[in-house]
Amino acid sequence: MKNRYEVRLAAVGGQGLITAGALLAKTAINKKHMYATQSPTYTSQVRGGPTKVDVIIDKDPILFPQAVSIDLYFATAQRSFDLYYRSIKRDAVIIVDSDLVTKLPEGDNHKIYKIPLTAETVKQIGNIVVVSVVSLGIVTKLSDLFTKEEVKEIVLSSVPKGTEEINLKALDLGFSLV
């Protein structure tokens, strides 16, 4: 695993992105004993406004808690994709919800995964609430940061009681979409 890995999740408020970021950071800290920070940026529009969360995972203490050289950029809304498409590494992985982010920058040479995230979540799980855990599954698989088991344990210890089953299903879905 790399010494440092920077993830930026960009979405609109209400998509559960801060939760996904928090779980990612928690997995790094608790399972890999690495350092991790999670810095959300949001707008006054709590539902529907562009938001992002930067998750930095590092073997060393993290000095500056915002992403500056992003390894993985995951966006689930066009507005947010455009606004936070900055500081992306040349060899970064980009993941977009293919129904919601349709306009990609011309001449972008990144490896881009276009996944119908929202549609598949609704279709296969029947509840959009767990889209953040689906995203977590996708990020885990593509980043190769942790094993599925490690993330699973963190998800189980973090989600509200009674929702374990649906969240595990969501995680599985994430892994199956890439």
Binding site: A25, I29, A36, T37, Q38, S39, P65, Q66
Partner: peptide, 9 residues
């Protein structure tokens, strides 16, 4: 805001 909102170990 950056110090206030960064979640860290």
């Amino acid at each position: 805001e950056i110090v206030g909102h960064s979640h860290e170990p």
